[in-house]
Design a protein around this nucleic acid. Structure first.
Lengths: 210, 210
DNA sequence: GGATGTGAATGCATTCACAGCA
DNA sequence: TGCTGTGAATGCATTCACATCC
């Protein structure tokens, strides 16, 4: 049976982003070459893991030398799909929404926030950065016109599932969810969840052990 | 060898927060009892996993009946350590910092944001919600006086490691890091990392597969 | 009958260890 | 010699399956 991209362990894919971040920082420091050992150490991992992870996707290094930093960065971006810009929309322009919208440097990472939506009619028409908040009624047209497949969901818990359903119906394939609720989505849709309170809970637990 | 709390799989601990969130929502709907099956289904997990996870910490259910929702909530809070309020501080009052500070409901989850800090002298003295932004010079005194062990780090990448070192030196044991950089910390300190760009990268990768 | 709790079995991710190449 | 790439071995998490109890 042929190896498909799908049988890569999920934890390995998560680490790809980590490697990319670290490599970008090395590039910034004008480091031209890095070994799996060095990369691993700076991230608190093992060299074998770095090599294995990269090995799922191809051969990028040179024995006896290591990995060329700029080339590996390019390769990782291509693998992740961030070598081209993905148009992204956001629904829910509250505190979190505004903060994320204000974040500079999305574009460098392969994303462009191209549309903002809110259900609250008082927010519609207001400017946030370069963008104007739109009504949810415009969602279908905008998604269509700009070929959007990624959405950031920053609405209150009570509205999250409903808005997610709407997004999916209109063709969104990936949702970054800030609402502290588990979304129910069809197979072909991917959700990533950011839950600040849950992370703090983990910290309390882990710090009270030692 | 005796079982210590430490040999609980990390993924299991992460799911505890998930269970808690779901149980709170069930309590809100006045559901008094829930089976592992039902709880699992609502979270996209298996019943065996729910039982095994809870089993690491004790026996909470009644065979033939299930788990009493309010009791299990209490137990989970005690396990996680969120049955008592943890005083928390934040450094870096930019966009993200302000958004997190504005988040209502920390207290219900077991946290109280009790102090804000920023290096920028122009921000010091300004009010954010009920709190006044303080100078980093005051950090040692505040940590001491309020017995703070948790910190939210929302400073720029360039300052993150330095501020983290300072926090740790003053006795902070857990750091929630929003800066997209891997912090180097001693053994006894725990870090959780929230990286919005990395999550979006994952979405791009996962959605381009199918 | 219906559900928990938990050892045993499985499956998946990590680490080892070494052949092969620069 | 130094480092990659990768099968084999290990270790860890999940799932199975059933004895036990309400």
């Amino acid at each position: 049976m042929s190896r498909t991209r799908l049988d890569v362990p999920d934890p390995a894919v998560r680490r790809l982003s980590l490697y990319l971040r670290q490599l970008e920082s090395l590039e910034h420091e004008k480091v031209s070459t890095v070994s799996s050992r060095r990369l691993a150490e700076s991230l608190g991992l093992t060299d074998a893991q770095v090599r294995k992870d990269l090995g799922y996707f191809g051969q990028f290094g040179r024995p006896g030398v290591g990995y060329e930093v700029p080339t590996l960065i390019q390769s990782l971006r291509r693998i992740l799909g961030t070598d081209r810009i993905s148009n992204t929309l956001m629904v829910g322009i509250g505190n979190i929404g505004r903060a994320v919208a204000a974040y500079q440097g999305f574009r460098d990472k392969g994303f462009e926030l191209v549309a903002l939506f809110d259900r609250d009619e008082r927010k519609v028409g207001k400017k946030v950065g370069r963008l104007v908040v739109q009504s949810l009624d415009d969602l279908p047209d905008v998604i269509d016109a700009q070929n959007i497949r990624l959405a950031i969901l920053a609405v209150p818990v009570a509205a999250a599932q409903e808005v997610a359903d709407l997004l999916i119906e209109q063709g969104v394939r990936g949702i970054l969810n800030f609402a502290p609720v588990q979304l129910r989505v069809p197979e072909h849709v991917t959700v990533r969840h950011i839950d600040v309170a849950a992370e703090l809970e983990q910290l309390v637990f882990l710090t009270s052990l030692r």
